[in-house]
C-alpha cells in the first residue's frame, strides 16, 4: 500500500511547555485513521503542522510525497481539511463560500458544488449566509468545503463537533461512502471514542505530545473488548510515568 502521509520526527514546542515531541507516523492509502488522545495531548498541534498552519521546530510532514514546508501547494493539492472548527465567511452565502474554495481546483464546477451540498444535506440552504447557521450546519458546510475537490486525503479535526445524533450518523456514512467509492484516505481526530470505533480502521494514540501506539482496529478489538478499553489502558500505562525525559 502507498504511504500518503509521512510524519517524520515532528516537534513543535509552545512557550508554555506544551506541544508535540518527535512524532513519527505513516498513513497509507485507504486508511481511516483515528487520531486519539485526551484534551491538550497535541492532536490539533500535529494537525495544524500537517496542514501548514504552523511551522514545526523540527521534522517534516510529507503528503503524497511533497513536504508541506517546502512544497505546500503540491502537498495540499489533494487534501481537504477542517482544523478545530469549520470556518466560513459569514458575509458570503454557503454557495459563495464553496466558490471561494473551488477556485483553487481546476476540476470543480457548480455541479460538483451542488453535489457536496447535497451530500452534506444543506443544499436547500445554499443561498443563505452562514451567519444564521447553527453550529451543526456550519460543520456540514465545512465538510462540504473539505471534500469539494474530491481530495484523496481528508484531514478532519473533531468533525462531529456540534452535530446531532442524526448528523453524526450522516457523517459516518459519508466517510465510509467516500472511503469505499473514491478510496479517500481519512485522518480523523476525535474524542468521541465510540464513534471512532465505528468509523476508523486504524488507531493512533497521542499522549502528552508523544505518539504512543499505532494499531489496526481489528487487532485492537481482538485484544480488548472495546476501543475505549484499549485507549484507557494505553493512557494509564503512560500516564503513571508522567514526565519521561524529553
Amino acid at each position: 500500500m502507498d504511504k500518503v502521509i509521512e510524519i517524520q520526527n515532528l516537534s513543535k514546542l509552545y512557550p508554555n511547555g506544551r506541544g508535540i515531541h518527535e512524532i513519527n507516523l505513516d498513513i497509507y492509502q485507504g486508511d481511516i485513521f483515528g487520531f486519539l488522545g485526551p484534551n491538550g495531548a497535541g492532536k490539533t498541534t500535529a494537525m495544524k503542522v500537517m496542514t501548514g498552519l504552523i511551522r514545526p521546530d523540527r521534522g517534516d510532514v510529507r503528503i503524497s510525497g511533497y513536504s508541506v514546508i517546502e512544497d505546500y501547494e503540491k502537498a495540499m493539492a489533494k487534501v481537504g481539511c477542517i482544523i478545530e472548527t469549520a470556518e466560513s465567511y459569514p458575509y458570503l452565502s454557503a454557495f459563495d463560500n464553496l466558490k471561494q474554495a473551488a477556485r483553487y481546483y481546476p476540476g470543480v464546477d457548480h455541479k460538483r458544488m451542488d453535489e457536496v451540498l447535497e451530500l452534506t444535506g444543506i443544499l436547500r440552504y445554499k443561498n443563505e449566509k452562514p451567519r444564521k447557521f447553527s453550529l451543526g450546519m456550519k460543520q456540514r458546510l465545512g465538510i462540504a468545503a473539505a471534500i469539494l475537490s474530491r481530495p484523496q486525503i481528508v484531514i478532519l479535526d473533531e468533525p462531529l463537533n456540534g452535530l446531532d445524533v442524526e448528523g453524526m450518523i450522516d457523517m459516518r456514512k459519508l466517510i465510509k461512502h467516500l472511503a469505499e467509492t473514491e478510496q479517500t484516505t481519512f485522518f480523523i481526530s476525535s474524542h468521541l471514542i465510540h464513534d471512532v470505533e465505528l468509523t476508523c480502521n486504524r488507531i493512533g494514540v497521542v499522549y502528552n505530545g508523544r505518539m504512543l501506539n499505532v494499531e489496526s482496529m481489528d487487532s485492537i478489538l481482538k485484544n480488548y473488548a472495546t476501543l475505549e478499553n484499549y485507549f484507557v489502558s494505553e493512557v494509564e500505562r503512560n500516564g503513571r510515568v508522567p514526565s519521561r525525559a524529553s
Binding site: T51, G52, L53, Y72, E73, K74, A75, M76, A77, V79, C81, I83, E84, T85, E87, S88, Y89, N97, Q100, A101, Y104, Y105, A145
Partner: peptide
Amino acid sequence: SHNMMRITLTRPVSR
C-alpha cells in the same frame, strides 16, 4: 481574528 484565515491557508496556495 475569527480564524477565517484558515479557510484560505489550508487550500493549496502558498502564503
